[in-house]
Amino acid sequence: MAPFYEFGRFGDSASLVVAVLLGIAFGWFLERGGMGNARKLAGQFYFTDLSVLKLMFSAILTAMLGLFWLSWAGLLDLSRVYVPETFVAPQLVGGLIFGVGFATGGLCPGTSCVAAATGRRDGIALVLGMLAGVFVFGEAFPFIETFAESTARGAWTLPDAFGLSHGTVIGMIVAAALGAFAGAEWLERRAERPAAPPEPAR
């Protein structure tokens, strides 16, 4: 029965080996998808290259459906899988701040590591900036602690929030993702079309 670590099938030292191996595969696919290139990522925000949206939604759908089926087949105990905790207000405000930084820097924390590893100086600058930002947050934490810990909802899930079944929510997310993929393809075709008719050949 999965998750294997949760059921004591391997220990802490082995879990760190698993971490490196999963990280290698994660970094590999990020680089394959062009996510180590800030200019490609920035295209997301000008509707010219929507790879970020396509990649993120494809990954979420794959893992979400996999979890659902493994749990349905009785192979995985979903209650032992960690759900990131909800803090409504800090996550909304933190998300807005994060998004402004994302558009400015053109890479996110994970992809900046790939960019830095493949020789992109901007990736290295962004990694250093992240460390500086986390340090500033850490030093400011005593003053914003009350807000940062506010509106805690624990492991709150979309089925809980909407009072819908797990399967219904998953169906809605799949439908939204397929719609987003179609919209992304349409936007990219529109961006490729030249603004003015091409000059006649000389």
Partner: peptide
């Protein structure tokens, strides 16, 4: 951008 993201990511956890 990295510094701003660092602050946002920590606030959002």
């Amino acid at each position: 951008g990295g510094a701003v993201m660092g602050i946002g990511a920590r606030l959002a956890r």
